[in-house]
């Protein structure tokens, strides 16, 4: 067995330190070691996006990143986006617009969408579809996911206008 590494991560604002084999995949670190089970494992070959988290400001498929690569990184998962008393606008929008069914893709979807809206606060439908193309859903046919994200963007924009 390869020797273990001393790893430091910040996950959802909390600092974590532990010893791990370098080959440990970030998704397993989150799910098995830190009990952060929102991100899921779907395809394991970086196609489905169920494991999407934000690493140092980038949307990343955490099944295709070794924990060693993430050493020192800042990681945000669905659990870090909102809280029961203060839901992220996307969390509300997905419920309002029936943007999920079995829920398995949802944490990765919402985490990815949050980054998409950060980078492009006012996307067209086409831009949403293109920007979400790294996340597969088997249940919804995407129509209501797209609708949810557009609704969230509209809400964020009207809030911003109101503040200005």
């Amino acid at each position: 067995m390869a020797k273990k590494m001393h790893i430091k991560l910040t996950v959802n604002g909390q600092e974590e330190e532990f010893l791990a084999e370098p080959r440990e995949l970030l998704i397993h670190t989150l799910r098995e070691r830190l009990n952060i089970t929102g991100p899921h494992i779907g395809c394991e070959t970086s196609h489905c996006g169920a494991c999407t988290v934000t690493v140092n400001g980038k949307s990343v498929k955490s099944c295709t990143m070794f924990v060693a690569q993430a050493d020192g990184a800042d990681v945000t998962t669905i659990e870090g986006l909102g809280s029961p008393d203060n839901l992220h606008v996307l969390q509300r929008a997905f419920k309002e617009n029936h943007g999920l069914q079995c829920g398995f893709c949802t944490p990765g979807m919402i985490t990815r969408a949050s980054k998409l809206l950060e980078e492009n606060p006012n996307p067209t439908e086409e831009e949403v579809r293109f920007g979400m193309a790294g996340n597969l859903c088997r249940c919804t046919g995407y129509q209501n996911i797209v609708k949810s994200i557009l609704a969230a963007a509209a809400e964020l924009n009207s809030a911003k206008e109101a503040a200005e």
Binding site: R23, L25, E44, T45, T64, M65, Q69
Partner: peptide, 26 residues
């Protein structure tokens, strides 16, 4: 060497690539 790893890591996970020493360029 590994950069983004999105070609290499899937190959390693499928055990089609066996790499005893991985050098991260980040």
């Amino acid at each position: 060497v590994i950069a983004g790893g999105h070609s290499l890591i899937p190959m390693m996970k499928l055990r089609m690539a066996d790499i005893p020493h991985l050098i991260d360029l980040q």
